[in-house]
Design a binder for these strands. Structure first.
Lengths: 251, 251
DNA sequence: TCATCCAATTTTGAATGCAATTTGACGAGC
DNA sequence: GCTCGTCAAATTGCATTCAAAATTGGATGA
């Protein structure tokens, strides 16, 4: 307390830090910046392959380059951006090949989650998933895509949560974030066959989970993700002519 | 078109930029520090729960605090250390619970690798794994623990490699690194039953891989890791009295 | 007209500096 | 004797600064 405390100066103001709550429970400025920057990129505010303008983002976030660059290193380790030596950061371009890879890993993680969930899930937690399943079915019948997606994601999240494995949850969330960037417009509305198939797969999922058949559920979940990927890929192929690349990097 | 082509200059020297620089070979100081620091921690040079002394490491690596702190953020995101606001970095203490979690995730990743490997593995790659398997069997018969471990790890690495999925390989390597820190002395020499069981499981693994039975191989691999974890846990329990914790953090 | 070269500007990577917080210790008070 | 409050030293987090590399723009020459 003996140090000159500036908080008595009301007109301090060079860096107002408006929205940041003082000393929120545990997180520092770095985490704040990291989360915001990740959100910023995942949301698609930066084109794939585009340079990440340090100075601009510094001004936008009201910070200096040091914490921003720290966040960039972390995002690079997460695979969201890539750091070219002496050439700055770019938003990683995700190719077709990598999308397939990410889907497969997601499938493996969900398979694991399903297996673990069968070992640990409580009856109330299962009942909640069952409820979500029926709600989702209602959305399916009504062709309510938005509600369907919400329930669908909630179910998968509950399964991962029921696995009760922090390392799995964190890894799953990381891959989900990486995949969220790709706009795989799995527009089920244009693909009624796939929608019905997905719904049937979810029936199998619920059934296996009810029977606590771990290995079986894992297998179903992996194939479920595989089919989802294939549907997304065909959709993508239908929308995007082959070979078309949004060139944002000349070299 | 207007790109300045420097390749006409024969005596350019330091970085000729011949054609297209693949970013993988170019490493900055940051990556160097990151790799060295990770190695430093994984190798166990810092006690679990101990503070990570910034200034000391700066002198040790001959760098300033900025790149070191960047590396610390990345290692924290990898789960090797934890960052307490205003209280610095500590080596993460891995509890019994987390070891179980990590083993399960490893099991899930290996199961995925096995499944994918069945889809993609070439005959020569399988033959190589088969060769390693027989070599490992020889080590088993001779009770050569070191050789056995080497072959064992080589086999698992080959399976992951055969999956041909960069995202999977990177994630697998990350978890392997986190687990390498824990000295689960699965000393098979004191646990002949487990050793024989592991050998039989590897027979099953090879058999399923030969038949390209993906789902089955995934199941075997997951259970293989589960059994390995259980053996390690019982071993740990036999060595460490229950409740004993190497307290390195007073708080 | 076009490609090549060179200097100025911008941008990146790392070091240093500074305020704020924590840590540890000493002494006053109960 | 023990607890609590105050203070100095060390540490942390972030901003600023500095050197080096890349990019840009114009000048030069074929």
């Amino acid at each position: 307390m003996t140090l000159a405390t500036r908080e008595s100066d009301p007109a301090n103001g060079p860096i107002p830090l408006p929205s940041k709550p003082r000393e929120s429970l545990v997180h520092s400025l770095h985490d704040e910046v990291l989360a915001r920057l990740r959100e910023f990129i995942v949301e698609g505010n930066l084109a794939a392959g585009a340079r990440v303008p340090e100075r601009l983002l510094c001004e936008r976030f009201g910070i200096s380059r040091t914490p921003l660059r720290e966040a960039l290193k972390v995002l690079a380790s997460e695979g969201l951006i890539e750091l070219l030596p002496n050439r700055g950061a770019r938003v990683r371009r995700i190719g077709e090949r990598e999308i397939v890879e990410l889907f497969d890993v997601m499938g493996g993680l969900e398979a694991l989650a399903g297996r673990l969930a069968c070992e640990r899930i409580s009856d109330p937690a299962f009942a909640e998933i069952e409820r979500l399943h029926h709600e989702m079915y209602g959305h399916y019948l009504r062709r309510d895509l938005h509600g369907y997606f919400a329930c669908n994601q909630a179910i998968h999240d509950r399964i991962v949560g029921a696995a009760d494995n922090a390392a799995l949850s964190a890894t799953y969330a990381g891959f989900a974030g990486r995949l969220r960037r790709v706009r795989y417009s799995a527009n089920l509305d244009d693909n009624r066959d796939r929608w019905g198939e997905a719904m049937r797969e979810h029936e199998e999922i619920l059934d296996a989970l009810r029977r606590r058949a771990g290995a079986e559920l894992g297998d179903i979940l992996f194939r479920h993700l595989r089919n989802k990927r294939k549907a997304a890929a065909s959709q993508e192929a239908a929308v995007t002519p082959p070979g078309e690349v949004v060139a944002a990097e000349s070299a």
